[in-house]
Amino acid sequence: MSAATILLVDDSPVNLSVLRSLLGKDDHEVIAADTAEAAIDLVRGNPTFDLILLDVSMPDMDGVEVCRELKEDPATMHIPVVLISGVRTDDASVRRGLEAGADGYLVKPIEDVALRAWVRATLRISQLQRELAAHAPPAPASNNAVLRMFTKLCHNVNNPLQALYASADMLALRFADDLENRKLVAEILAQAERVAQIVARASYAAKQRLGE
């Protein structure tokens, strides 16, 4: 996985510093915003970020609403957004975040290895979707409620799929010196890749038929 450009959105200077240092270990370029308004301006001014890590509890605007606004904008909807919260950790909050279009919802405290694994998983799924969009032929447009439901289902599948990727990634680190277990982890990752490709193809086909 090549290095990515990641936007960190958090009103805590300490959190921004820690996350910047952590993601720098994987050579990612990290840009920080300490307000929701600044984050929106950055993304709309240059919508080329590979990933946005967005704290839910921002002082000037709810992080979930920031996510919703970016996902409703055709110019920025393609950027994966992972919400992070240490307060709103109940199922209803997670569901609200995912319904706003978030590509993941992480609950603090997050182990360093787990966060880096989640970032790699999210970037991998996003990369698969971009590669598919670049090579797949266009499909005829239509407007169908079933297709919209199917597109939403594909989006929701990505969250547990990211968890599978991240968990396998952490196992690979744990069993780095164990050849037999490394083979098992490699098989898990290979199957996760197959599922990710199936979901990406299905989602892309549905969106094309909807003209999105």
Rank of each mutant, 00 (worst) to 15 (best):
M61N: 04
T89V: 12
Q197V: 05
H78W: 11
A75H: 07
D60L: 10
D112L: 00
I31L: 11
H78K: 15
L184P: 01
G86A: 07
A190S: 13
D62F: 10
P59W: 14
D112K: 15
L54E: 02
L189T: 09
D91T: 12
Q129A: 04
R148P: 00
K108T: 05
L153N: 09
L19A: 11
I198M: 07
L8P: 02
A92R: 08
A139W: 07
L98N: 11
A38E: 00
S12V: 14
R209S: 07
L147M: 05
I40Y: 02
K25C: 08
I79S: 03
Q127K: 12
N156I: 00
A172F: 02
V87D: 03
A100I: 11
A141P: 02
A172Y: 03
V199K: 01
A133D: 14
A190Q: 13
R120E: 09
R96W: 02
G63D: 05
H78S: 15
A133P: 03
E37N: 09
L132W: 04
T76G: 05
D50T: 13
H78T: 07
L19C: 04
V18L: 14
R182K: 14
T35C: 04
A32D: 04
E65C: 01
A172Q: 15
S17M: 09
A196L: 04
V157S: 03
A200L: 08
D50F: 02
P137M: 08
L16S: 13
A166Y: 04
D55M: 06
R148H: 10
D178T: 06
A133W: 11
M1K: 12
L132M: 10
G63C: 03
A92L: 06
D103F: 06
L173V: 09
A114Q: 13
G86E: 03
K71T: 06
T5A: 07
